[in-house]
Design a protein around this nucleic acid. Structure first.
Lengths: 133, 133, 133, 133
DNA sequence: GTGGTCTAGACCACA
DNA sequence: GTGGTCTAGACCACT
């Protein structure tokens, strides 16, 4: 089963950013493996019904961030770079993000259980994105 | 000690939204009490070194959402209303926070499962704080 | 005297990259100071006679690399971030780059003196870019 | 031990140019001697896992520049010509190397002056190597 | 075929 | 006024 892309045009998140996030998510969760080829710019532009330049912009940000690497005329591939971030930084970052997240939802008056449910729902959607746009 | 405002010009979050969020957060955490007076638009614009219109926009959104009351010529006060956050805003906020959270952990190369575990651990710690912490 | 931009359309280096490099150079050599404002996208597009999007692309790469930071509606400013790179890394990088450079010119059969002259010439050009494009 | 080829897919340098540069470098440093035979197009394409046309393009540029001679049906050989690098190519190469060098040190946040000093120091060391190094 | 660069022009969000 | 996003379409370099 291939890695799927999809766009949500109601979320207010720019298309190109949705694509960037989707790839990062795929890489982080090993749905996209190092060396794996991404769809061509043209192909994805047809699939997602958006302009070619929008895809190109997303891919070029991914390249700049070292997440993919691009060989002109050949394609775009998930970078071989194992996590650039060292494990201790990763752990610290994770804790910080978790604490901030829990603080923010409590500031909104949201119970932790509700947040967990929401996270799981979004997670499920991301694992199996809907076909439509 | 007074409730403080500050702006982060690196986060990419618009100034007016940072102000709105700050007030909501303050109210939710009882750092701003019902009836308490907010700084004047003019004062805050000087303090934060931003345009007057930017502050005005933030206050007007807060007014619209019933979080503050503006008395012409007197000032802006935290509303007496208990239910500061309306459910649809709450839902939107929750989704946004969850999406951002998942994006950020992905960017750190952390799998969603790891993050869930971390969240649960922190949550458990907060419910049953160890002595001394 | 203001920091000047200029484009060389013969070098084969893309316009947007020339702009990126120019800013990085300016920051590294303290011709652009932290907090200093860059020309607006529109202004620079007029000055350099290139499309608005080309400038925007350059600025957006600079933003992504943390060299500038952007506040929508306000402008683009040189980032306050003091060199993200720690000094020992900097020193190591410098030595590596210098060695590689000396190796490469000798591989081309170029004497060190010639290279120094060329470096100084380019350096002079960059300090005082020609008015034309 | 044979002269080795390798490709770096992260550098952004086109494959064909990497091959051209590698041969020039080998010739300049006498790792490839006049009359020595290069791998066949077919062989190299297998070794490097790139398209046959890419190798062919590299060899054809080398032929055009007089660096190698191709004997139909026999193979490709390093040219007997002394002056492998023609002056205009040399000049272009020098400029490109200098520009890249200045860009890279800027990206490290190093001032041009510091780099000049470092270059001179390394140069001096190389001219008068310390005992033991 | 692949990706990269650039233009012209539209519309939106923010200060 | 500022920057951000997106489209449509052209042309180029590389495989």
């Amino acid at each position: 089963m291939a890695f799927r892309f999809s766009l949500n045009n109601k979320s207010g998140v720019p298309y190109y950013r949705q694509i960037v996030n989707r790839v990062i998510y795929g890489v982080a969760n090993e749905m996209l493996l190092p060396g794996e080829r991404l769809p061509t710019v043209r192909q994805l532009s047809v699939d997602l019904q958006v302009n070619l330049n929008t895809i190109a912009k997303a891919y070029s940000e991914l390249e700049l961030r070292g997440i993919v690497n691009t060989q002109q005329g050949t394609g775009t591939f998930v970078s071989q770079n194992e996590s650039v971030i060292d494990p201790s930084e990763k752990e610290k970052g994770l804790l910080r993000l978790c604490r901030t997240f829990l603080d923010e939802i409590s500031a909104l008056g949201i119970k932790t259980d509700e947040a967990f449910t929401a996270l799981k729902t979004i997670e499920k959607e991301r694992k199996n994105p809907k076909k439509g746009s």
